[in-house]
Amino acid sequence: MSFKNKILRALIATVAFATAAATHAAGPELRLDKAPLQFDNASLQHGAKLFINYCLNCHSASYLRYNRLQEIGLSDQQIKDNLLFTADKVGDLMTIGMRPAEAKQWFGAAPPDLTVIARSRASHYGSGADWLYTYLRQFYRDTNRPTGWNNVVFESVGMPHAMWDLQGEQVAHFVEREDGHGGKAKHLERLEIVKAGKMPKEEYDEAVADLVSFITWMGEPSQHNRKQIGGWVLAVLAVLGVLTYLLKRSIWKDLH
C-alpha cells in the first residue's frame, strides 16, 4: 500500500510541477465576464431579432435555416413576416448577399460566418459565450484604427462597433504595469461611456446577454434536445447495468 502511495505522490508532484512550469509562460491574460445566458423563448427571440438586425447584414449564419427558429417559439408566419429579409423561403439558410471576396476587400478580412462562432471562441479563459458577451460590450473609440473603433478583448479588430447606437461611445483607460518579465503591459483600468446610446448600461448588457444566448443556441440548436435524450439514455443504461450485474453474479456463483 505504501508503495502505491509513493507512486501516487510522485505522480501528483510531477504533474503539479509540469503545470506550474507550463502556465508560467502563458500569454497575456484575457479577462472575460461571465455571460448571464438565458435560454427561455423570450430571450432567444429577442436575441434572434438583434442578431438579424445587427449581425446578419455582414455576417452569415449559413448552416442555420430560418424555420429552425420554430424551436425558439416562432411560427413560420412570424418568421416570414418579421425576419425574412434576404431569403424568400422559411426553409432557406441564413446566408447574406455579400460575396466573401468583396467583403474581404472592404474589411480586410471576410466577416466570419457566425453559426458556430460561440463554439469556436471557447478557451481556457472561459466559454465562447463569455468571450462574445465581453467582446460585444468592450468596444471603445480609437482614432488610430481605420474604423475608429477598437476592442479590449480583440485588439485591432476589423469590425466597427455595430451596436454603437444602442450602447453609445466608450473610451478606454489603460494603465501600464510590470508584466513580470522586465517589460510593461497595458492593462484595462476602466471603460467610460462618453456619449450615451439608446440604452442605459444595464439594458444594453441584458440585450447583449440575449443576443449571446441566441448565438449560443444557434451554435448547437440540438443541445437542449441532446441533454434530454441523454437523461433517458443514462437511465436505461443504469437499469441495464443493474440487471447485467445481477445476472453476472448469478451465473458466476456456480464457480468455486
Partner: peptide, 19 residues
C-alpha cells in the same frame, strides 16, 4: 430466478438496442 433475470436483461437490452 436466473431465467427471469435473463428475460429482463434481454428485454431491456433489446429495447435499448432498438432505441
Amino acid at each position: 430466478s436466473r431465467r427471469n433475470l435473463i428475460a429482463a436483461t434481454a428485454a431491456v437490452g433489446g429495447a435499448a438496442g432498438l432505441g
